[in-house]
Amino acid sequence: MDWRQLWEICSAPDNVPIVGLIPLLAFFIYLAWKQAHANDQLIGQLETDPALAKTHHRKTWPFKPGWQKEVHVWPFLLRIEFLAAIIVTIILMVWSITLNAPLEEPSNPNLTMNPAKAPWYFLGLQEMLVYFDPWIAGVVMPTLIIVGLMVIPYIDTNPLGSGYYTWRQRRFAISVFLFGFIILWVSMIMIGTFIRGPGWQWFWPGQTWDHNRLIYEVNRDLPDEIPRWLGGPIVSNWAKGVFGAIVVGGYYLIGGGLLYSLFRRRMAKDFRRMSLLQFSIMQFFLLTMVALPIKMSLRLLWHIKYVWITPWFNV
């Protein structure tokens, strides 16, 4: 265990926000969960008791007849905003006094930094470079993330859970978002920050960053891995292209079928509300998201680099 190495990574000034992000996220997930849990209990209670549902004010916070439903912005909101501004200013002041912004040597195109890392918020995309070619990791994925976020309001047809925390009314939507935000975005940043060392190699926390470490790994492509009894390995370029198209296409087809089955059986109401376009967009984005961990494990566990090989692009 190399504590010094660990300390060096965690205390690097630009890594401090990432270290801070972990407890912040934990706190806010807890805060959201607590309110969702309370709301869910109330929802359960009101659903079993229609009479109460008619009279209850339908919030978990206390309310008594005669209380005003609205309060004045001045001072009740403005004082909070003012307080928040002061607190943020103090935090920022203390942070700026105690920790200096990083400044390395003057830029030198002839001296490559190792590891050369993107700014921390883009490390998830840089981590994806290990598993995908740059055109996917650097261009297609950011585009899909932006477009995918933008379509959310148009494909989530569930009218429940608007304006309050809940889990039981939005299980699917919240699971997918947590998967995307926590697993695919934040944890990739954690890997990029704390685990990737020189040569973008995998160093467990506490392992010394050995600049001379070599890893002998032979990465192969999926067409090469087809066992002999299935007619493999595939040699011809044409056959590789067709094979890859079948595998990728098959993934989306079978995955789409599974999602359809899941929706039809378990989420019939949501399925009925969704149009064909809404449902297929949801299928596409969800399957693309799930494809990331699949491709990652193919690479990390079975050393498979490409699934689909063509003369123009590889996936």
Binding site: P102, E104, N108, A116, P119, G138, V139
Partner: peptide
């Protein structure tokens, strides 16, 4: 700041643009 950190981060970042389809 035109230091090594920024230079290489931006180099890594913009190199991806080479691969734009």
């Amino acid at each position: 700041p035109d230091d090594q950190l920024g230079f290489w981060a931006v180099t890594v970042g913009t190199n991806m643009a080479r691969a734009t389809p």
